[in-house]
C-alpha cells in the first residue's frame, strides 16, 4: 500500500509546526535545540516524500546534506549551550539576554 503524498506532507507540516512552537515558546535551551532538530527532520521528510513522488534522487541528495549539516550544527550548538551554562549557571533562554548589551 502506498501512502499518499499529502499524508506525508501533513505529518511533515505538523512536525515543523511543533518544532517552531518549541523554538518560540520553550525556555530550556536544550529543548529549543531539539525543536530545531525536529524542524530539520520535518523538512527532510518532505524532501524524501517529494523525491519519491517525482521519481528523482535530487531530494534525497539534499537530505544527506541536511543530515551532515545537522550533525555539525549539533556539535557546535551543544558546545555553545555548555559554554553558556558554565558562564551563566543557567540554560533558561528567558534569562539569557546577552545580545542586548
Amino acid at each position: 500500500m502506498v501512502v499518499p503524498l499529502h499524508h506525508i506532507i501533513a505529518i511533515s507540516g505538523l512536525l515543523f509546526t511543533i518544532g517552531v512552537v518549541g523554538v518560540l515558546f520553550r525556555r530550556s535551551a536544550i529543548i529549543v535545540f531539539m525543536s530545531v532538530e525536529i524542524m530539520l527532520n520535518a523538512v527532510n521528510l518532505a524532501f524524501v516524500a517529494f523525491s519519491r513522488y517525482h521519481g528523482s534522487v535530487d531530494g534525497q541528495v539534499f537530505v544527506f546534506f541536511i543530515m551532515t549539516l545537522a550533525a555539525a550544527e549539533v556539535a557546535v550548538g551543544l558546545a555553545i549551550i555548555i559554554a553558556l551554562y558554565r558562564n551563566l549557571r543557567t540554560a533558561d533562554l528567558s534569562e539569557i539576554h546577552e545580545l542586548k548589551h
Partner: peptide, 14 residues
C-alpha cells in the same frame, strides 16, 4: 525591539 532574547528574534524571523 532589541530585547536580547533569542526567541523574540526568532519570532520576528518567522
Amino acid at each position: 525591539l532589541q530585547s536580547g532574547l533569542i526567541q523574540h528574534y526568532a519570532s520576528l524571523i518567522l
